[in-house]
């Protein structure tokens, strides 16, 4: 199953392309929001800098941070899994081969984008969906997300109540090298994700300002403006 791509004429030499379908946009914003919540609570959980006054029973700082973290984790994990499934179900711009470069064209596209970033090329190569370099980087990002989910579930499993189903994830503990190394990976992974977030936000603003193709608006509406001659249906 594969969704067809919707295209509408828009002026003389421009078309509107429906690039990001609703599940792509929804999971994008759920992941964005939950990463901020998870990182905010996670930083406190790794280094609780606020000390509660009074009796222990008067406050619940860490407890609250953990509670929010776990609700965030539910949203994050479900959104990531949904997005991964949509790589098999969605339109051409959402597919797995937008990330793993399987054609020589995508490989060349990634090289062109790299030379643009290194000031060797004046303009970014035209792409409608993800540019090929970003696509490759997103493979790493998704692996990082999976690593966060796996280490998170491993840490969570061991404090699950007796007979609570989450305890079943205990099998992950030896796979990530024990709990302390799970913690380390989980904590280190957060900083890698935050580095990605910074990169992502700045490069989107930059490309949007240069290409004037409404890339920022597209993640809200789904539609992108594309020059007719640069229309590329993703295959």
């Amino acid at each position: 199953m594969k969704q067809p791509i919707m295209v509408q004429d828009s002026g003389k030499d421009k078309v509107l392309v429906y690039v990001w379908e609703a599940p792509v946009r929804l999971t994008h914003w759920l992941i964005a929001l939950s990463v901020l919540v998870l990182a905010g609570t996670g930083i406190y959980m790794g280094n609780p800098f606020l000390i509660a006054p009074g009796e222990a029973s008067d406050n619940f700082y860490m407890g609250t941070a953990k509670l929010i973290h776990f609700y965030g984790a539910i949203v994050f994990s479900l959104a990531v899994v949904t997005r991964l499934l949509w790589m098999l179900l969605g339109n051409a711009y959402a597919r797995w081969n937008q990330f793993v470069p399987t054609s020589t064209r995508r490989v060349r596209g990634a090289a062109d984008m790299l030379s643009y970033y290194l000031f060797l090329r004046r303009n970014p190569p035209p792409t409608v969906g993800h540019n090929a370099l970003a696509g490759v980087a997103y493979v790493g990002v998704f692996l990082l997300y999976l690593m966060m989910i796996i280490t998170g579930l491993a840490i969570y499993s061991v404090s699950a109540h007796v007979d609570y189903p989450m305890g079943a994830f205990g099998f992950l503990v030896p796979l990530v090298g024990g709990l302390q190394s799970a913690r380390w990976l989980h904590h280190f992974g957060m900083w890698l994700i935050l580095l990605f977030v910074v990169n992502h936000v700045f490069s989107t603003i930059e490309v949007s300002a240069l290409e004037r193709n409404g890339v920022i608006g597209s993640i809200f509406s789904g539609w992108k403006t594309v020059e007719k001659e640069q229309l590329d249906l993703g295959e």
């Binding site: 930083i43 790794g46 280094n47 970033y117 000031f119 904590h187 280190f188 957060m190 900083w191 935050l194 580095l195 910074v198 990169n199 700045f202 490069s203 603003i205 930059e206 300002a209 240069l210």
Partner: peptide, 25 residues
């Protein structure tokens, strides 16, 4: 400290990207 390194790396990368964007634009 892991958080200090992470914080400065994030800030540094942000600065680098901002500079790149300014130069390109």
């Amino acid at each position: 400290n892991i958080d200090k390194v992470g914080f400065w790396a994030t800030l540094g990368l942000g600065g680098a990207f901002a500079a790149h964007a300014v130069a390109k634009i």
